[in-house]
Structure formats: structure tokens, C-alpha cells
């Protein structure tokens, strides 16, 4: 009984001292903007934007096309 109590206490102390890593920085890291690639294909995410926005895309999670699979 006493050993079990000690075991429980140790477990509780460990649990109380357990907290997730928190560095203040996003994990995964921030996606800072990068220069576009002038000669990239039009469907390349790094392609430079057209002067006039051509097509709408949804903001709720991303673009209007999905990957199959």
C-alpha cells in the first residue's frame, strides 16, 4: 500500500511538472515572405503574381483546388 502510494505520488509530481515546450515562437516556424521567381511556371506557388488578380480563391483554408489521394 505504501509503495503504491509513493508510486502514485511520484507519478503525480512528474505530471505536475510536465508542461509542453513553449518558446514563444511558432512551431512549425513562421513562413516569411520570399521573392517571387520571375520565370516560374504560372501554376508554381513561387510565380510572380499577375498585375491584375485574375481569379478568386477561398480564404477558408486555402486554394480552390485539391490534391487527389
Amino acid at each position: 500500500m505504501r509503495r503504491l502510494g509513493l508510486c502514485l505520488l511520484t507519478f503525480l509530481l512528474y505530471a505536475a511538472g510536465s508542461c509542453s515546450r513553449e518558446t514563444g515562437l511558432p512551431d512549425p516556424p513562421l513562413r516569411t515572405l520570399v521573392p517571387c521567381v520571375a520565370d516560374a511556371a504560372a501554376d508554381d506557388p513561387l510565380a510572380c503574381p499577375e498585375p491584375e488578380p485574375a481569379e478568386a480563391e477561398p480564404a477558408d483554408g486555402g486554394m480552390a483546388e485539391a490534391d487527389a489521394g
Partner: peptide
């Protein structure tokens, strides 16, 4: 406008900003 969002290490494009 010359700055765009990067792809990740797998080549995935970034989601839009919310």
C-alpha cells in the same frame, strides 16, 4: 507584390492568410 509565400520543405504551397 514581388514577395510571395514560400513552399515548405515538401514543396507544399502555403495556405492563405486568415
Amino acid at each position: 507584390p514581388d514577395l510571395v509565400r514560400p513552399v515548405d520543405s515538401f514543396g507544399n504551397e502555403s495556405p492563405s492568410y486568415v
